[in-house]
Amino acid sequence: MIKVENVTKKYGTFTAVDNISFKIEKGEIVGLLGANGAGKTTTMNMITGFIEQTDGKILIDDIDTLKRPKKTKRKIGYMPEGVPLYTDLTVKEFVTYMAEIKKVNRKEIKEKVEKVLKETGIEDVKNKLIKNLSRGYKQRVSLAGTLVNDPEILILDEPTVGLDPKQITEIRSLIKKFGQNHTVILSSHILSEVSQICDKVIIINKGKIIAVDTPKNLEERVSNDNSVYVTVEDKENKIDSIKDKIKNIKEVKLVEQNNDGTKKYMILGEKDKDLRKEIFEVFAKEDITIFEMKKADSTLEDAFMKLIEGGEK
């Protein structure tokens, strides 16, 4: 269990992390979400003991990270941002080195290295120099180095940055797999990633926590809008007077004008009323041809933007 209590980090007069507190239970996959410079990496660096907080306390299984750093560091596997690696070593040498400095029992090193190479799918490149590997493989090597001592807690700083879509899916499924029996904290500024992988999201903005919730709850928190997107062919602009025909419509907004003469509108309705049936029927009577109609899903993206805007006010 990780407990962060009133932690502040100051660089001179600049406050990077401002009095944050949160708790992460064993086995949870938690996403730290925030724009660049929000304080995600700083927070992670403090938990791993790479830097020290100006104020506050961080407890890992009730052990203070400042008082007994050796003990807490053993419990954590940290994959820093930008996957720093010793590029002059081969994959196997690197992972073995990581096992050694993390004080894995000497007799177990060989076996654990083999196991983790297999788990992360880099067995076939184990004798290659790291500098000759592609970005996706480097990410896996870094992950292997993080996992080699079987840490209880995995801390991954932007684990999918710089990867192509195929590699992203692969790394994500690897993280999910390890999330089954590890506590995982990962940071990201990609919302869909967090909502796919994480049980819980901590949103940070300008060094402050503005929300801690499940991805689903966060989406619901902002999903009180009820809007429908329609793409129509409407030569006589009858849609301007549609508000009079359908009472539940609050607002009609032009979103996009396509080259083929069709227009995309957003139609905002009263709460909790599904407008789609009525729109379909009335538009047909009015000779407005519907090309496409879609109920707008509120996404984590909306939640994020709203929360950040709200936090700044």
Binding site: N45, T48, G49, F50, P69, K70, K71, K73, R74, I76, Y78, P80, E81, G82, P84, L85, Y86, T87, M98, I101, K102, K103, G145
Partner: peptide, 14 residues
């Protein structure tokens, strides 16, 4: 410069 310092400093080595 390479950031590998982070690997070293977050290991249990003093």
């Amino acid at each position: 410069k390479n950031g590998t310092e982070q690997l070293l400093m977050t290991s249990p080595l003093s």
